[in-house]
Design a protein around this nucleic acid. Sequence first.
DNA 1: GCCAACGTTGGC
DNA 2: GCCAACGTTGGC
Length: 154
Amino acid sequence: MATWLVKTEPDVYSIDDLARDKVTDWTCVRNYQARNSLKAMAVGDEVLIYHSNAEPPGVVGVAKVCKEAAPDPTQFDKKSEYFDAKATQDAPRWFCPDLKFVRKLPRMIPLDEMKGCKALDGLALLQRGSRLSVIPVSEKHFNAIVELASKAAR
DNA sequence: GCCAACGTTGGC
DNA sequence: GCCAACGTTGGC
């Protein structure tokens, strides 16, 4: 089983929206590297949900892949701002898995705290200028973040 | 709102 | 295939 982290802007789609929807197709990712990660997701993989452009930014919850990546319908929707004229039904460019809400963490883990955490050294999210919206996370890092959430903030 | 760090596009 | 110009992301 693999583990991942996906970013979302809470103003657009927050962990609470996911909690309400229970399951959502993770659409609108338009970056090839991120797309490749989405396509590599398998049913049962666990996914950390991260709020970007938030105050503060940080990891807020856990979801689970419940359906492998399928063509992202927003690429075919002319009215969508994510419409892609170069994508066809025969050769879709963008894919989205379905994610199922698992739980919110007992507390959010701010980016700041992750930066100061030795156990999270090497986490791709913390690399300088990391802008990827879908990131593979080692199981070790995944567990370290979940454990942090069960401890009180420093 | 600023801007650094990337990614993408397109002319050559 | 290079690379300048432009667009986007996302922390601050």
